[in-house]
Amino acid sequence: MMATLLALSGCGGPLSMLDPAGPAARDIATLWWVMLVGALLIFVFVLALVVAAFRRPRTAAPTHSPRDEAARERLFVVTLGIAFPVVVLLALLAYGLVIGERLLPRDEPSVVRVDAQARRSTWDFTYPGLGRTSRNVLHIPAGRPVDVAITTADVIHSFWVPRLAGKLDAIPGHINVLRIEADRPGTYSGLSAEFSGPGYSHFKFEVVAHDPAGWADFSEDGTE
């Protein structure tokens, strides 16, 4: 089923998190493919156990002695029910933790900081140090980490550029910082990803990643 869908629609699209264009989105896409393969293996294994229960050749009468019962409990409950998930989950948690730590905004000399404020139907971006603002289009340099400081002027929103990184909410009275980065210059679609009433479906923005020359122009030029 998944395979058919994959063939039908592929992984592309301007908003596909499976077509990553930055380090954060790429880490998470890899995480997804690893988890998908693991989940498929577990699913097939569990289903095989169920099917096998129906196909099993049977002795004349099923045995219910306390010893059989205890052996079954050891196999199904202790080994399969407890030990198996604990091992799998510990591995997955460690992997997820490492990736999560790697995606956090940390101090680096090359980091660019921008402020993003959402209000219903618009995103306003300001560039501290550059004395510039832009509306619904966020300008960033390609190949450099960018920290977006996100807040809102009205209700809760969420800043999300699926091909670059995960999302982070814009919450009244709070400022959340999200690290994004684009590998190459280009235009990336962004979405407001927290329901905000009528108009939500069309509440989008764009991220333009500039090459070094373009970014220098943007930084120096007073106009958009």
């Binding site: 989105a25 988890m35 577990i42």
Partner: peptide, 21 residues
């Protein structure tokens, strides 16, 4: 079982940052 497996996926923080909402 599928729902449980995708549940484990969304419990992994970085993946949830992408698929949340």
């Amino acid at each position: 079982v599928i729902g449980g497996l995708t549940g484990v996926m969304v419990a992994v923080v970085p993946f949830d940052w992408q698929v949340h909402d």
